[in-house]
Design a binder for these strands. Sequence first.
DNA 1: CGTAGTCGGAACGGCGGGATTCGAACCCGC
DNA 2: GCGGGTTCGAATCCCGCCGTTCCGACTACG
Lengths: 124, 124
Amino acid sequence: MKDFEFKKLYYSISEVSRITGLEQHVLRYWESQFSELNPAKNRAGNRIYTNKDISLIFEIKRLVREQGFTIEGAKKVLGSKAGDGSAQLVETEVAVESSDDLKQILLETRAFLNDLIEKLSGKA
Amino acid sequence: MKDFEFKKLYYSISEVSRITGLEQHVLRYWESQFSELNPAKNRAGNRIYTNKDISLIFEIKRLVREQGFTIEGAKKVLGSKAGDGSAQLVETEVAVESSDDLKQILLETRAFLNDLIEKLSGKA
DNA sequence: CGTAGTCGGAACGGCGGGATTCGAACCCGC
DNA sequence: GCGGGTTCGAATCCCGCCGTTCCGACTACG
């Protein structure tokens, strides 16, 4: 069996919700507010989030939920840094209950690492 | 006539309102929200603004009206710079330019993983 | 297949951030 | 002392932001 999958590239909205700690409807709402947040969709219309999408969501979350920007203010900040291609490690503040949760986080983090490795090999 | 008054030390609320372009009730409201904004009062109870008060008001105005902070967010910004006296960039962002940056992120991520492993072994 | 997940849109809601109103007190020139 | 302008704090009102809930319909997947 392939007991783990390398290079997980896409996430459903429920996965993203769990990873980011944001309700699904908040994700949809933010998507309607931030043109930068534009996950692809599959043929059925379901959202297909990439690691980049997720890190953008974390960025918005930091601005809006932690630093206290309005949505409008957060847009400005994002707009002003458009095009810098930043990748960043997000602080996973998920409520960790079980070791299953932790395993999931490890898997996702590895996906993040794989993503980084890709970028690295593409850039170095 | 004295064609301008220099070194005026105190201002009434109506003067401050004119100077800052903010309604009087907004000045009173902000005063109720920001403990830092605390103009003295005369014996009659009327507010007596100093130049320092006014520049603080302008600072709040920049944060709330231009940059798009909520009142709460503006409080944090003001609070966080109390006593360091330096203008600062609010957000911590990692602009990925070089593979050195990526290496750094990888290192940090490894630390993050180690942390997770600790938690995992503590719980599993 | 069943059922769990997702979809978009519309209606709804809390509350933050003022805005307005009020009666009372004060200030100042006369 | 009198009248007009300014200010006061408290109470009340209000609008829009930021979600939140609800919905019926569609689809992925075991």
